[in-house]
């Protein structure tokens, strides 16, 4: 399977935070055959294990989160309009006129209502509607809709996928499924005998609502060392992001007080040696990623953090470059095959 196929397939699977279990079977079918073991834990973390076949091999955990931001049904009006509350950091600017899918007994397509300019009052355009004022129009009468959808049914953005110039692509929930796709691809295509340890890929749950899945997933697996992969902000003219963290800048390695300095240093050295394109990013206050909780799990898990730069994070049209996805895959391969790292951080 090509990396781009995975990059299209993963975001199409439903995985609103808390509801990641909904797509476990599809996920297993998609990539399961390439792994020795697939399982899902009590918090809906999905695990894919590939063993090295060596005795006393170190246990390496690669974490990318699988959940995505979305919404949840809070009320259904008699005339079939659906009110929702956010799950995770949903940007309310991008909601009006957005296309969504309500995951009830069956999938229900809907459009988030917007006020046409004709009906707007002067000054309305400057104001954002709050989530409470918005509703989803499904075109189904209320009583019929209640048979399919109920309070608590999750709502996701409708999957979109667009190829842009220069092998850049646009789609939803590349945060963090772009990393998940790259990692699965990397591990799938690494011959068992080259692995420096037993690799456990964790597609973790509930990251968007407070790093909840990784906390318990890390506890359950308790690896010798871990690599957390997430997306980061690529430079755009409207931000204060450093210009050299941009699309096609490769994998972005984070230096932070909470990540293991030695492991990070070794990962950087590995990039140099294998000529994997990378940039550096500093996170003085900690990272806002699963790395925050991974390092202090149980008796400590040495953890490194690397990211893929993307644009328009948390919108239905996140934008990335396939070159960066390939860099991240190469980086992952380097990390899981590095005997130097395994020697230092293994048992």
């Amino acid at each position: 399977m090509e990396l781009k196929e995975l990059m299209m397939a993963l975001p199409a699977l439903m995985s609103v935070s808390g509801y990641e279990k909904a797509s476990d079977k599809e996920l297993y079918e998609l990539v399961g055959e390439h792994f020795d073991e697939c399982f899902t834990d009590a918090l809906n973390n999905h695990f894919f294990v590939k063993r090295s076949g060596k005795e006393n091999a170190p246990k390496i955990l690669i974490d990318t989160h699988y959940d995505e931001i979305g919404m949840i049904v809070t009320r259904i009006s008699d005339d079939g309009f659906v009110s929702v509350a956010p799950i995770g950091g949903v940007d309310t600017r991008i909601l009006q006129a957005g296309e969504v899918i309500i995951y009830g007994k069956e999938k229900v397509y809907g459009v988030i209502g917007s006020t046409p300019p004709h009906l707007a009052q002067p000054g309305d355009a400057d104001k954002l509607k709050s989530m409470e004022e918005l509703y989803i129009d499904t075109g189904i009468p209320g009583d019929e809709l209640c048979e399919i959808v109920r309070l608590g049914s999750p709502v996701g953005f409708k999957p979109v996928y667009t190829e842009l110039l220069n092998d850049r692509i646009c789609g939803k929930s590349f945060d963090d499924k772009a990393c998940a796709a790259s990692v699965l691809y990397a591990v799938m295509n690494t011959p068992r005998e080259e692995l420096a340890g037993d690799v456990c890929v964790m597609l973790s749950s509930q990251e968007e609502v407070g790093l909840r899945g990784a906390r318990v997933g890390g506890f359950g697996i308790y690896p010798d060392y871990a690599l957390v992969l997430d997306v980061t902000f690529a430079y755009t003219p409207d931000t204060e992001i450093r210009k050299d963290v941009c699309l096609e800048s490769g994998v972005c390695i984070t230096l932070s007080p909470i990540t293991d300095r030695r492991l990070t240093r070794m990962a950087i050295d590995m990039c140099r040696e294998k000529e994997i394109k990378y940039t550096l990013e500093a996170a003085p206050k900690g990272t806002g990623t699963n790395a925050n909780v991974m390092g202090i799990t149980r008796e400590g898990i040495p953890t490194a953090l690397a990211s893929m730069p993307i644009k328009s994070m948390h919108s239905p049209s996140e934008l990335l470059s396939m070159a960066d996805a390939q860099s991240l895959a190469d980086f992952t391969v380097g990390f899981i095959t590095s005997t130097e790292i395994a020697e230092v951080f293994g048992k």
Binding site: G286, N292, I296
Partner: peptide
């Protein structure tokens, strides 16, 4: 370690 940034090394110490 790391008390000042809240990702407490003391947690790990107490766990072990």
């Amino acid at each position: 370690r790391c008390e000042e940034i809240g990702v407490s090394g003391a947690t790990v110490a107490a766990n072990s």
